[in-house]
Design a protein around this nucleic acid. Structure first.
Lengths: 266, 266
DNA sequence: CTTGTTGGTTCACATAGTGAACCGATGGAT
DNA sequence: ATCCATCGGTTCACTATGTGAACCAACAAG
């Protein structure tokens, strides 16, 4: 293992729960020699990746990180950031994966990836603006967005499928509550006949829902089991996808998305 | 020089102007051996600090940076982030340095540092809310804030010193224009008799003005020369201060703040 | 077909990293 | 006041790790 990897690995020891670490803490957590750990910490500090509190002598994440992260979001287009994660997810699921960002109440296309495993698969046009209430993505967003938004969305005619009956406010509220508890939204044949999908929200740096990721699959292919399987895949990568865009998922939702056995293991 | 420092130094080669670098680019820029550079790049990539474009094979800043940067802003209080920069600035200037954030049209105290070089120095209470138009900070903010704000600020009575004549809209506009050209705002005896100050805006991650940094000094001490000297110190650190808070200064303002001889050198 | 790029790999060599032992300071317990 | 544990940090002999000249394969322009 390269010394570079060892040193950079130290940064991963810091977390929201454990934002400040002393020399001995790091030494214990890594099992490495104190002298080694110290030299690594000093090197990271000199590069600005760590800062040392002058009074407690504890280390915390440094300013160079925000500087470089800012550079990344400015110079790397969203699509590039998403590519590898979304490709992986599409490969694992064997279905069409789709990321949209919210602009007002429009779901605008950001990126998609499709895998050609199945003979029958979902295809779609990337630039249509589907109505919020007719998609799993739209409902996933509303279920995790701040409260007031629902009324505004209901008032906007563009959020509904033309010709369809207006959604009942009580019913919708009930469904969103279910989604918030379950961790993902689902949809069967609502937007296009024969197409089902599951979706989760994505969160920005301030942990606000601002985009969504969905998997679409032919309704014919799967019953409850398929839906649950795809939803699991989606939720398992939910945090990674938000992070790829520079966001962070609120901890209670990370928990919701983490399978029970994994939670027990950690 | 430690290999860790060498590897981390590679990240600094990336910039807004040069966001993607190939192996040979990095080799040229550093003068190090190609094999060495390559191993460093791979190590950084494996840690997520770099990503390699699969088609062009060029490297760009990676997702680990945004993840860690997010952690930093969540876990490290603003005051902690500012401390070292502001302390340095206060030491260099030998005067009181002051950082405020805008909440509506209130300048709320974030952090300050005072140096005890001079026998006569400015002291102040940290928690007063000075009127926007009576301070260098307030004017620095307005001069670099989006246009519509000025009218809203003029309409708000709290932005003006009680008892003072209402500011003339044309005059104010002219002054803000001057400030925008000069790069900093100034103030003599407006808020408190015998106290002058110079101020610059601070920018957030989206490059919007959201806070200010000012240096206060006794009017008696300095004429034009002192003011210019302190303003230079302030502007020289302007980018660093914004960055400490996770923001980034628009490039045209960085230029405005960079002395002519330094610009020629780089 | 040459010539000059590019990204990447190999291996003998020496430099840079390692860790046991040590130091001084701090903070409880006794 | 003394002991003991723990803290952050340093030293130095030893060797594992990093280094760089030489070497590929692939690609593009002349």
């Amino acid at each position: 293992m390269s010394t570079i990897a060892k040193a950079l690995g130290l940064l991963d020891l810091f977390s929201d729960a454990r934002p400040r670490l002393g020399l001995s803490d790091v030494q214990r957590l890594t099992g490495r020699d104190k002298a080694t750990v110290h030299r690594h910490l000093v090197a990271l500090e000199q590069a600005g990746f760590l800062e040392q509190d002058t009074s407690t002598r504890a280390y915390r994440l440094g300013a160079a990180l925000t500087r470089l992260a800012g550079m990344r979001v400015r110079t790397v287009p969203e699509v590039e950031m998403l590519r590898s994660v979304i490709d992986d997810l599409s490969r694992d699921a064997g279905e069409l994966v789709h990321v949209s960002r919210l602009q007002g109440f429009d779901l605008v296309h950001v990126h998609h990836a499709e895998e050609h495993n199945h003979p029958v698969r979902v295809s779609f046009d990337a630039y249509g603006l589907p109505p919020l209430f007719a998609t799993a993505s739209g409902k996933a967003y509303l279920a995790f967005a701040p409260g007031g938004l629902l009324d505004l969305a209901l008032a906007d005619p563009r959020t509904q499928l033309p010709g369809a009956p207006a959604p009942n406010r009580m019913e919708v509220e009930g469904e969103l509550k279910q989604i918030a508890q379950r961790g993902y939204a689902r949809n069967r044949d609502a937007l296009r006949l024969g197409v089902s999908s599951v979706a989760i929200p994505l969160f920005d740096a301030a942990s606000r829902a601002f985009a969504t990721c969905s998997i679409a699959y032919p309704t014919g292919r799967g019953g409850k089991a398929t839906e649950a399987h795809l939803a699991r895949l989606l939720m398992a990568r939910g945090e990674e996808i938000s992070q790829a865009l520079g966001g962070s998922v609120p901890s209670h939702i990370v928990q919701l998305w983490t399978p029970a056995q994994e939670r027990a293991a950690s």
